[in-house]
């Protein structure tokens, strides 16, 4: 594949990856923070005292990460961070599913019960993140808009 095609492929992947984070963050910010906190509570993972803080800050962090990936600045590292975040979320989802927890994913706002398709979707997102990260490290120069 030519460098030009790699460049456009990486750009497309980057835009999609950024879009995922932006969509996730914005969907949560459109709802009361208590909604996301309730979803987090269901995962039985975080201390109760931290739920409000996480519920209020994580959506903004998702938006910021999405913008960072979209900008292309320090793409290798932000793509790596995005992939790490997806991997972490996926691990939590798998753990919760294995434990039989009936929870709301809270991934893109409320209303999505955790199920096999959630895990398949997030696994696909992880593959995308990994691909963008690999492409960014492979490129001689960071892809620009």
């Amino acid at each position: 594949m030519t460098n030009s095609r790699w460049k456009w492929l990486l750009l497309a992947g980057r835009v999609v990856l950024a879009g995922i984070f932006l969509a996730a963050g914005i969907a949560k910010l459109r709802e009361p923070w208590a909604q996301f906190a309730a979803s987090l509570y269901g995962f039985k993972l975080l201390p109760d005292g931290s739920l409000e803080t996480v519920a209020k800050t994580l959506p903004w962090a998702e938006v910021a990460l999405g913008l960072a990936v979209l900008s292309g600045i320090w793409l290798r590292w932000f793509a790596l961070l995005a992939s790490g975040v997806i991997a972490l979320f996926l691990a939590v989802l798998i753990r919760s599913y294995a434990m039989g927890l009936q929870v709301d994913c809270g991934c893109f706002g409320s209303g999505e019960a955790l199920g096999p398709m959630t895990i398949v979707r997030d696994s696909t997102m992880l593959v995308l993140g990994a691909a963008v990260t690999w492409g960014a490290f492979r490129s001689r120069k960071p892809a620009g808009l």
């Binding site: 009361p32 906190a37 409000e52």
Partner: peptide, 30 residues
Amino acid sequence: VNQTPTLVIVKGGKRQKIDGFVPFPILKSY
């Protein structure tokens, strides 16, 4: 509403929905 329990918090004519169980400390803070 597509699940229970669901809380609809009404203030100033505005309705905000919260799906699922909400522990009291979170609800209290909100």
